[in-house]
Amino acid sequence: MSLSNQIDKDYIEAYKAKATVKVAVLRHLKTAIKNRMVEDKADSLSDDAVMELIARQVKQRKDSFDQYTKAGRDDLAQVEAQELVELEVYLPKQLSDEELEAAIDKAIADLGASSMADMGKVMQAVLGAHKGQVDGGKASGLVKSKLS
């Protein structure tokens, strides 16, 4: 079953179960998928494209959570945290810090990277090899520290 079909199925189940947070999250996600399909003039999206949309929604939720926390709006931060939990179900398991470090070391060795000029190549290799499993900010920090 494609990821898009799984989201549709989960939306219907959540709606019937009256799970308001999950319904809201999946409704936003379904809208994003539909908008992307209209932009691309396509009948459906690949799982990679849907995964990219989910990752974008997760990033937005994390940013909102951080902003609300800094502003002292714990009520809104709590809502974002709940929505984030619902969205992360659809993402692949994130790499642990050790796995991420090993992946970066491997990419640096494979590419023969030795300076900050090679950072883009290393980042592209790591993010491409572990699509959806790596936090770009965390990876960027590690790559910078290793190439500096």
Rank of each mutant, 00 (worst) to 15 (best):
S4L: 11
Q6K: 14
D8Y: 07
D10F: 00
Y11F: 09
I12W: 06
E13M: 14
A14Q: 03
Y15H: 10
Y15V: 10
A17C: 11
K18W: 14
A19E: 11
A19L: 15
T20F: 12
T20C: 12
V21Y: 05
V23Y: 03
A24K: 10
A24F: 13
A24Q: 06
V25F: 00
L26T: 00
L26W: 02
L26M: 01
R27T: 14
R27W: 14
L29I: 05
K30F: 01
A32R: 15
A32Q: 11
A32W: 11
A32I: 07
K34C: 11
N35R: 09
N35A: 10
R36S: 08
R36K: 14
R36N: 04
R36A: 05
R36E: 07
E39Y: 07
E39D: 12
D40A: 09
K41A: 15
K41M: 14
A42S: 15
A42P: 04
A42H: 06
D43H: 12
L45N: 00
L45C: 01
S46Q: 12
E52S: 07
E52D: 09
L53F: 02
A55V: 09
A55H: 13
Q57T: 11
V58R: 01
Q60G: 10
Q60N: 15
R61N: 11
K62P: 03
K62E: 14
K62H: 05
D63W: 02
S64E: 12
S64T: 07
D66P: 07
Q67P: 08
Y68Q: 09
T69A: 08
T69L: 14
T69W: 02
K70W: 13
G72V: 00
R73W: 07
D74G: 10
A77W: 01
A77H: 00
E80A: 06
Q82E: 14
E83V: 05
V85F: 12
E86Y: 02
E88Q: 06
Y90I: 00
L91R: 04
K93E: 13
L95T: 00
S96M: 06
D97P: 15
D97W: 06
E98K: 08
L100C: 03
E101M: 09
A102D: 13
A103E: 04
I104A: 01
I104P: 00
I104L: 02
K106P: 04
K106E: 06
K106L: 13
A107K: 10
A107H: 05
A107W: 03
I108G: 01
I108V: 08
A109I: 11
D110P: 03
D110E: 09
L111H: 05
S114W: 14
S115V: 11
S115H: 04
A117D: 14
A117W: 05
D118I: 09
M119S: 10
M119N: 11
M119P: 00
M119Q: 14
G120T: 13
G120Q: 07
K121E: 08
M123Q: 01
M123Y: 00
Q124M: 06
Q124V: 10
V126A: 10
V126S: 03
G128C: 10
A129Q: 07
H130N: 13
H130Y: 15
K131G: 07
Q133P: 02
Q133K: 11
Q133T: 02
Q133F: 05
D135N: 07
D135I: 00
D135V: 02
D135C: 03
G136P: 00
G136V: 10
G137E: 04
K138Q: 15
S140T: 13
V143A: 03
K144G: 02
K144W: 09
S145E: 04
S145F: 05
S148P: 11
S148L: 12
S148Q: 04
